[in-house]
Computed example of a mutant assay.
Amino acid sequence: MILKHSKIGVSSEELSVRSLIYFIIELQNLFEYIGNYLLEVEETVSVAESVSSGFLQFSFSQMKDASKFFKGGITAYTLDEKVRLLNVDEAEAASCDCVSPNIAETMALNVAKSFKTDWSIAVTGYATPVPESNQKLYAYFSIVYKGQVILSEKLDLHSRTKQVNAQLYYTEFILGCFKLELDKQNEKRSIS
Results as ranks from 00 to 15, higher is better:
128 T>P: 01
71 K>H: 12
67 S>P: 08
158 H>L: 12
173 F>E: 12
135 Q>M: 14
152 S>V: 03
125 G>W: 02
98 C>M: 12
94 A>Q: 15
59 S>K: 06
60 F>A: 06
162 K>S: 11
148 Q>I: 08
177 C>L: 15
129 P>G: 08
165 N>K: 11
66 A>M: 08
73 G>N: 09
170 Y>R: 00
175 L>C: 11
151 L>H: 05
117 T>G: 08
50 S>N: 04
180 L>A: 14
114 S>H: 08
172 E>H: 14
94 A>N: 13
70 F>D: 01
139 A>L: 05
166 A>K: 03
102 N>C: 08
137 L>N: 00
78 T>S: 15
109 L>W: 02
122 A>Y: 02
114 S>G: 12
164 V>E: 03
148 Q>S: 14
154 K>V: 05
79 L>V: 10
97 D>T: 07
109 L>H: 07
137 L>Q: 00
184 K>I: 13
74 I>M: 09
93 A>M: 08
140 Y>H: 12
91 A>Q: 13
133 S>P: 00
79 L>Q: 05
170 Y>G: 00
143 I>E: 05
120 S>I: 02
155 L>T: 02
120 S>Q: 04
91 A>K: 15
84 R>P: 01
93 A>F: 09
131 P>N: 09
74 I>F: 11
187 E>A: 14
135 Q>D: 12
87 N>Y: 09
119 W>Y: 13
176 G>A: 13
126 Y>A: 04
161 T>Q: 04
141 F>H: 06
130 V>Q: 14
127 A>G: 10
112 A>S: 15
153 E>S: 09
154 K>R: 15
185 Q>G: 09
134 N>H: 11
128 T>I: 13
55 F>S: 07
110 N>Y: 02
52 S>K: 05
150 I>V: 15
81 E>F: 09
168 L>I: 11
73 G>F: 07
114 S>T: 13
82 K>T: 06
139 A>I: 03
158 H>K: 12
52 S>G: 05
58 F>K: 13
141 F>R: 01
134 N>R: 10
105 E>Q: 15
166 A>F: 02
62 Q>C: 11
149 V>W: 09
118 D>Q: 10
107 M>P: 05
103 I>N: 04
153 E>C: 06
137 L>P: 00
181 E>P: 07
151 L>M: 09
113 K>D: 07
152 S>I: 00
66 A>W: 00
90 E>D: 08
167 Q>N: 06
157 L>Y: 03
115 F>I: 10
104 A>L: 06
138 Y>C: 06
52 S>Q: 02
175 L>Q: 08
56 L>P: 01
90 E>F: 07
169 Y>N: 05
92 E>N: 12
91 A>L: 14
85 L>R: 11
77 Y>C: 06
95 S>K: 14
168 L>Y: 01
118 D>L: 03
54 G>R: 08
108 A>Y: 04
148 Q>T: 12
126 Y>S: 03
64 K>V: 12
81 E>G: 02
93 A>G: 15
147 G>N: 12
83 V>S: 10
145 Y>K: 13
107 M>Q: 09
127 A>N: 06
135 Q>S: 09
180 L>K: 15
50 S>Y: 00
128 T>S: 13
151 L>I: 04
111 V>L: 05
106 T>S: 15
118 D>C: 10
139 A>N: 02
51 V>R: 00
